[in-house]
């Protein structure tokens, strides 16, 4: 079968110690037998490694941050689209999803497909809504309270015990052992990610994650559970292994069925010693470790692109457990002229 030629535009090229899913997504889609893909990288920062890596993007453009307003971001995308028509757009940062979900129709009118969660699903799973999300869908979640001012810290700890996690609206999570630490973290996190800052009960156990893809009708197209084997000081997986955990899978199917989840998802859970599962976060996109799922037999990026193109996709039913990944770092060598091109022209 001849491979179908498509062009995808993708963000999240920050393959750093806090990596985005862009680079592994591209790796997966390049391995597809169905597609012959031209990849347009969309970078917010001029040092995102994916810009400079060999064989990753065919062309990369700088785009303005969502914080400068949808209008500017969309104008830039339209400009890029005129030069290199885009079939499918894959945003990968939590902070940009609001803007892309809200403007899905605008993109579609221009022939750019996406496969994103609906605004309602997206909003109800945010960190500050986790408690009500748990209540609504009958899930165990750690107690978590929003903090909108440092003066509320005292009041907060009438209901919580230390240690706690202090989390930013979009990113960043730190463990804190006393009120003073919470206040300091509040200022640090709110300056970066705005309000509220979430304070979450610390549940003791093993951190396990599931990568999944929902078709928007309640069906799970694929799901692979993973246990982190090595965690960086930023709490990111530096190594992990696929596990055959029935309960995690059925929890995932259940959530996707009830929320009619559309698009990629990462469920972060804690498995306690008593084999209870607490949902600690629901990320509305595929995670940076998505290539592990590909290696285990589920090319979810390919399935996602097919769904975006309205193709019929059969769910995956199996994956190999015991597949593992180990991240490594590697020094890419470039010349200042590459940097000049991306910073002066905004493209490379």
């Amino acid at each position: 079968m001849p491979r179908k030629k498509i062009t995808i535009a993708i963000t999240g090229l920050n393959n750093t110690d806090n990596p985005g899913p862009g680079v592994p997504f591209i790796r997966a889609i390049r391995e597809s037998d169905r597609f012959e893909t031209t990849v347009i990288g969309l970078a917010y920062e001029n040092l995102e490694p994916g810009i400079y890596m060999e064989g990753i993007t065919d062309k990369t453009y700088l785009i303005p941050y969502p914080s400068s307003g949808a209008e500017q971001l969309l104008a830039r995308i339209e400009q890029i689209h005129r030069k290199n028509p885009i079939d499918v757009l894959i945003p990968n940062y939590d902070a940009e999803l609001f803007t892309f979900i809200k403007n899905e129709g605008w993109l579609r009118e221009r022939g750019i497909r996406t496969f994103l969660p609906g605004m309602e699903s997206f909003m109800e799973r945010t960190k500050d809504n986790l408690s009500s999300f748990g209540e609504k869908y009958d899930l165990k979640v750690p107690k978590s309270l929003p903090l909108t001012g440092a003066h509320q810290v005292d009041q907060l700890f009438e209901d919580l015990d230390f240690p706690v996690f202090v989390k930013g609206k979009f990113y960043d999570a730190y463990k804190a052992w006393d009120k003073h630490e919470v206040s300091t973290l509040f200022h640090k996190i709110s300056a970066k990610w705005g309000l509220p800052v979430m304070v979450q009960e610390f549940v003791e156990g093993t951190e396990v994650n599931v990568i999944a893809l929902g078709d928007g009708k309640g069906n799970t197209i694929g799901a692979v559970p993973m246990r982190k084997t090595y965690i960086t000081d930023k709490g990111k997986a530096w190594g992990g292994i696929t596990i055959d955990d029935e309960k995690m899978l059925s929890l995932t199917y259940d959530i996707i069925r009830k929320t009619k989840w559309r698009g990629g998802m990462e469920l972060e859970m804690i498995r306690t010693r008593d084999n209870e599962y607490y949902i600690i976060e629901i990320n509305p996109r595929l995670p940076a470790w998505l290539y592990l799922a590909v290696a285990a037999g589920q090319n979810l990026p390919e399935a996602m692109v097919r769904l975006a193109l309205d193709e019929k996709v059969e769910p995956f039913h199996a994956f190999k457990s015991g597949k593992m990944f180990i991240r490594y770092s590697y020094d890419l060598i470039g010349d200042i002229s590459l940097f000049e091109s991306i910073t002066v022209k905004g493209e490379l």
Binding site: I336, F339, E340, T343, V344, K345
Partner: peptide, 17 residues
């Protein structure tokens, strides 16, 4: 200084536009 106005100071590693 390059033609596009990109400035690179090789003694400090700083760059400018």
């Amino acid at each position: 200084v390059s033609e596009n106005g990109f400035v690179f100071d090789s003694s400090t590693g700083d760059s400018f536009n």
